[in-house]
Each structure stands twice: as C-alpha cells, then as structure tokens.
C-alpha cells in the first residue's frame, strides 16, 4: 500500500441552474484511506460524490483516478462504485442477482467464486436466494456493500450509508464498516452529516460548507485545531467567550472565584451518562456549556459559579 493519492479533485466546480453546489473544491485521497466528506445538508458533499461517480459532470476542474482523467467518462466506464443512501438494491433480483449484476456487465471470470468470497466478507453467506424485501436494514446495507466491493473498485463511494439504519444498529455497523475497510484495504470516500460518525471512522475528514472545503485533516487535528469558526462549531460543542473558542472540556467550574475567572449563573444541565454538561449564563450575557464529570460537582440551576480556563486552550479563529 503506497502513500500516493488514488483520487484527486482539482479545482472542481458544479452549478445547478446558477446555484453553486460545489465551488472550487480540491481534494487528494490517499490510497487505502477512509476519507470522509462532512458537512450539513446542502454543503455540496453529495454532489462531490456524484461528480466522482459520474452521475454529474463538473462545470470546471478535473478529476483524476489512478493517474488518469475521470471527468467526462460515463459512470459505467469508471472504476469506482457507489453504496447509495437507500441502497438502491434491484427489487426484482435476489441477493445473488444483485451482487452478480456488475460482474455480468464487465463479463468477468469466476463470477461464482467472487460472489461467494464477497458474501463471506460481509457475512451474508446462506442468504443468496433471498430477495431484498426479505432482508433486514443491516443486511440490505451489506448487500449494497457487497455488490459494490465485488467489482474491486479503486475507490468505494458511500453516500450516508448508515442513515437508513436505526440508531441502535448504527454504532455497531460503524465499527463493522471500519473493520471491513481496513481488512479489504479499499479506499473509502464516505459522505456524512454526522460529525460523531466522521470522527469515529475516518483517517481524514474534509469539512464542507456552502460548496467549499473548509478544512482537511485527521479527526484529532480538525477537532483540536479547527481552521475556521464553522469547523469549530460543526464538530462537537464550542463556546464563544469574549471572541475566543473554548471546548466544554476546557472550562473549569468552581464555587469560589479563581484567577481570571468569570462569574455566571447556572441555567441548566444535560446529563449524558458518564459526563454532565452544565450550562451557565455569564455576566455579559454569553452562554457557555462546561463539561463536568458526573458526581464530581452538583451544580444546581440558579447557583452562582466561577468559570476559568487555561490560556493555551483558547482557539482564536477568524470570523
């Protein structure tokens, strides 16, 4: 596994009827990486994915896959495959038929062997003759994965593949998917609006907003050293006190005044099991949320608190 880039977008733009969907986006996806496009709905992440898949053509810019130009080619001439948001399994075909579909169109050899191998990989052996309607949500998602993986794409494109699952299952599938990616070694380009999902699974995250990439980096880097206010606010909770950004875990709450502390009044609490978030209103009207270990301090609403932090935890970001 080399460290070169398998996929590159160079200054790609796409408009829909004058509306900018993707503006001047450049990305480099290293081979074998789990690369996420993260952003709120309408930020251009899905359009970016569809540009790589070939369902849309860019107005400007170039897309390169394995050193050759990809843009301009129809979807069926690109060695990338997609796992669709609602899986888009063919309802008239069985699990086997769905997985064979691509192999038949590529006139591949050893279809039966390859189908069997991929069925084992996604733990669907024995379900070959089921129809998609007879499968659970998790199984359907694995058929969609198998159908794409069996073609050994250079990049697997995943469009919010976990959003159709119920929350209970989502966390489990998250770990399975990450494990599968590592085992198979396929490059993932993963679109999600769920920051927790992106942080948990990705090697790299590109945070997008309004058609543009705000920041690209490893999850820790993006969380701890956000490049813009948007990135800081979109990933996790961010307090803005006196113009500087502070994570809830950077704030200390005490009953007595400390050096450089700010006085506030507790307004509410959010209990999250192992930790508690305590919301307070400062004297200048700013609201902040501080993380406290559960049981360590029993602050009650209406109580006066003093909030302090280390200067090194302050994030100074341009508006």
């Amino acid at each position: 596994m080399g460290q070169e880039n398998v996929l590159e977008l160079r200054r790609v733009s796409k408009r829909f009827g004058g509306q900018l969907a993707v503006g001047d986006v450049s990305l480099s996806v290293p081979r074998g990486a789990f690369f996420s496009l993260l952003g709120p709905s309408g930020c251009g992440k899905t359009t970016t994915l569809r540009l790589v898949a070939g369902f849309e053509q860019p107005d400007q810019g170039e897309i390169w896959l394995n050193g050759s130009r990809l843009d301009g080619l129809p979807p069926y001439r690109r060695n990338v495959n997609t796992v669709f948001q609602n899986y888009a399994l063919f309802p008239h075909l069985t699990v086997q038929g769905n997985i064979e579909f691509g192999l038949r169109h590529k006139a591949a050899n050893g279809i039966a062997d390859r189908v069997r191998r991929v069925l084992d990989q996604v733990r669907l052996a024995g379900k070959e003759s089921r129809s998609p309607a007879q499968l659970s949500g998790g199984e359907r998602q694995r058929v969609a994965l198998a159908r794409a993986l069996v073609l050994e794409p250079d990049v697997l494109l995943l469009d919010e593949p976990l959003s159709a699952l119920d929350p209970q299952l989502r966390k489990q599938v998250r770990a399975e998917l990450k494990e599968l990616q590592r085992r198979v070694g396929v490059t993932f380009l993963f679109v999600t609006h769920d920051q927790e999902e992106a942080l948990a699974m990705s090697d790299y995250i590109a945070v997008m907003s309004r058609g543009a990439v705000e920041q690209i980096g490893a999850p820790e880097e993006i969380y701890h050293r956000p490049a813009t206010r948007f990135v800081a606010s979109f990933l996790g909770t961010m307090n803005w006190i006196g113009g500087v950004g502070l994570r809830p875990e950077a704030l200390r709450m005490t009953r007595e005044a400390a050096v450089n502390s700010r006085r506030g009044v507790v307004t509410g609490k959010t209990f999250l099991g192992s930790v508690v978030y305590v919301e307070s209103q400062l004297e200048n009207g700013e609201i902040c949320s501080a993380q406290a270990v559960n049981g360590a301090a029993n602050f009650t609403p209406g109580e006066v608190v003093h909030i302090s932090w280390n200067e090194s935890d302050e994030l100074r970001l341009p508006e």
């Binding site: 898949a53 069926y76 669709f84 063919f90 579909f101 691509g102 794409a148 073609l151």
Partner: peptide
C-alpha cells in the same frame, strides 16, 4: 437511484 446503481455497476 436504481438506474444510477445499474450505471454505477457497469451497465450502459
């Protein structure tokens, strides 16, 4: 998306 899936899997 069903047609797109077919194109994606190599069908014209």
């Amino acid at each position: 998306a069903l047609e797109e899936a077919a194109l994606d899997l190599g069908a014209t």
